[in-house]
Design a protein around this nucleic acid. Structure first.
Length: 585
DNA sequence: TGCACCAGCGCC
DNA sequence: AAACGGCGCTGATGCA
């Protein structure tokens, strides 16, 4: 039997806090009256209920009836933690509706994701509850009418139930996280209040309110310039599209029809996809750009991309700002994923549209060659570590070692080729794929013989990488799946070689970025600076002109600090500039 | 008509 | 034996 109190007058509400105040953390959930289920609006939708409980009591506050209760909650949450599921959602609504913003949180959804051992696992409260308690959580009231005058018994029961299950799953999740072996144990508020010792969990939990703020802030965009560019790109696209279809009668966006036409009528040689069909991808067509059909096709595709992206951006612009949504753990590596709109795949060309408003500046900062640095540290390759320590340009250095040339005499092309080798080979690319990869991504043509030579030279020169790859292969021969860890202790179970070597590197990169963001949040309290976008190894901040200099120093300090915590042997470097648009450097 | 899947391509 | 990984968005395609 589950008991709870539905509270609709202020006196009782304040009284209830007396009962709860002995706790260091509380369980929290909210119910929101949503106008349009498809598009939840954090700025205009209204919070109806706040549910708050400890292990004894559950209180449901009707915020339509006692909005003044927010005044009491604000100080109450100042040094108390809250436990909830997908708290980014609740935090955003508490902030916009009541200017209440708890910053010490334990998110059971994040916890479940960190513990997950397989990709197909769901992390809804319902799914997590079922896995842990074997109980089925009925969510049918979730989308009920939370705006009606008198809430039904079912609605109140449902609201209480969410809190009830939180107190069952929280200790289980926390203990499971603490059992994971990690290189160090966490310290700080999250540890003190929730008893979280897993450092990855501590970073992720600290990150939740930071990400909520980022989403609420949005990214400034030059709306006029965006619209203008969309107009121009659209008309150019339409013109060329019509010209193409009229001339050749082929749908440029049907790979099947395009390949049939190009290889049949025009007799072009095209590579095959993995499944065996002919490929019409740009990189395969690029060698035929002297033919006007191919050149026009490539132009149309590229224009279409631009138009689509501009439309996507425009449709999410409100009052000169773009509000994206981030999935905090978008990939198992810990990287985030951005959507509606995706702000993590904006082209160089379009970045100039993101402009600081009058009187403000942007700070654009990114880590330099961070994955190679992490890889060098992770596999403990002395040659690569030494190259970084002595401040060498790693691509140039690799070229000189592989080609047996003086460092100074490496040409631009040779450096470019080495770049492909560096990035490809640390992740176990094969010689033939290396050829492909170098051509597609770095515009470098090499023969298969050269690719083989470079491949073996790379592992000869960087023997730490050779050892690493061999060890991973050996372990995967012994067992079907193995556990791999980032430098912070993020864990993943993998079964493929490429996953096994990629995860620790990419994952450590996301550890690093998230830690930098958390540090920035702590250190920038006195100034008016907000992070407005994050792109894997890049941080973009919006700040007043006057405080830009201070902000950039704090950002650099934050990025350096997280770098030093994770990388002990390899120096971490980054660039940071005060600019007007995202495209400036 | 809606859904699942893939190809293609933008970013790191 | 061979393998670079991670995303989201659009639109074609095949199937129910």
């Amino acid at each position: 039997m589950m008991e709870y109190s539905y509270i609709f007058n202020l006196e009782q509400a304040v009284e209830s806090l007396e009962k709860l105040k002995k706790n260091r953390y509380l369980f929290l959930d909210t119910e929101v009256a949503v106008k349009n289920e498809k598009e939840i609006d954090f700025f205009t939708d209204k919070v109806r209920l706040i549910q708050l409980g400890d292990y004894e009591n559950i209180f449901i506050y009707d915020m339509f009836l006692i909005p003044e209760f927010a005044e009491y909650l604000r100080p109450f949450f100042r040094d108390r933690g809250i436990v909830g599921h997908n708290l980014k959602f609740d935090l955003k609504f508490l902030k916009t509706n009541f200017d209440v913003f708890p910053e010490i949180v334990f998110d059971t959804m994040i916890a479940s994701q960190l513990l997950s051992q397989n990709e197909n696992e769901k992390h809804s409260l319902q799914a997590v509850t079922y896995r842990i308690t074997d109980k089925y959580l009925d969510k049918s009231q979730q989308t009920s009418a939370w705006g009606i005058k008198n809430l039904s018994q079912q609605q109140l029961d449902y609201a209480a139930r969410d809190v009830y299950v939180l107190r069952e799953i929280f200790p289980v999740l926390r203990d499971r996280l603490n059992k994971i072996n990690t290189p160090h144990r966490s310290t700080g508020k999250i540890k003190e209040i929730f008893g979280v010792e897993n450092p990855v969990a501590a970073v992720e939990m600290s990150f939740v309110p930071q990400l909520a703020k980022i989403e609420l802030t949005g990214m400034p965009v030059d709306e006029k310039a965006l619209k203008e560019m969309l107009r121009e790109a659209s008309s150019e696209y339409q013109r060329k599209y019509i010209e193409f279809v009229r001339s050749y009668g082929v749908d440029p966006f049907s790979p099947h029809k395009v390949t049939a036409w190009l290889s049949g009528k025009l007799g072009l040689q095209l590579p095959r996809t993995q499944k065996g069909s002919l490929s019409s991808q740009d990189s395969a067509l690029r060698k035929y750009t002297d033919r006007k059909e191919v050149s026009l096709l490539l132009q149309i595709r590229s224009l279409k991309k631009t138009v689509d992206k501009l439309k996507e951006l425009e449709s999410h612009t409100v009052g000169g700002r773009i509000y994206s949504q981030f999935r905090q753990i978008g990939a198992p590596t810990g990287r985030m994923a951005s959507s509606r709109p995706n702000l993590q795949n904006v082209t160089r060309e379009l970045r100039k549209l993101f402009r600081a408003p009058e009187g403000k500046k942007l700070i654009v900062a990114d880590y330099s060659q961070i994955e190679l640095r992490i890889a060098a540290e992770y596999v403990n390759d002395e040659t690569m570590i030494e190259a970084f320590r002595s401040g060498r340009d790693l691509h140039r250095f690799t070229a000189s070692l592989i080609l047996g040339k003086e460092y100074q005499e490496v040409t631009k092309e040779e450096r470019q080729m080495a770049k492909a080798i560096n990035f490809g080979l640390i992740y176990g690319i094969s010689p033939s794929s290396l050829m492909e990869y170098a051509r597609n991504n770095y515009g470098v043509d090499i023969s298969i013989e050269d690719a083989k030579r470079f491949h073996s030279r790379f592992f000869q020169v960087y023997s730490g990488f050779k050892k690493w790859h061999e060890q991973v292969k050996e372990k995967l021969r012994e067992r079907h799946t193995i556990e791999v860890y980032t430098l912070l202790g993020r864990r993943m179970v993998v079964s493929r070689f490429t996953e096994a070597v990629n995860f620790p590197i990419q994952g450590t990169g996301s550890d690093l970025l998230k830690m930098a963001v958390v540090f920035f949040g702590k250190l920038s309290g006195d100034i008016n600076a907000s992070i407005v976008n994050l792109v894997h190894d890049e941080i973009i901040v919006e700040v007043s002109r006057e405080e830009a200099q201070k902000a950039v120093e704090i950002l650099k300090e934050s990025m350096a600090r997280s770098g030093k915590l994770l990388l002990k042997k390899v120096p971490v470097e980054f660039e940071a500039g005060i600019v007007d648009t995202w495209a400036d450097k």
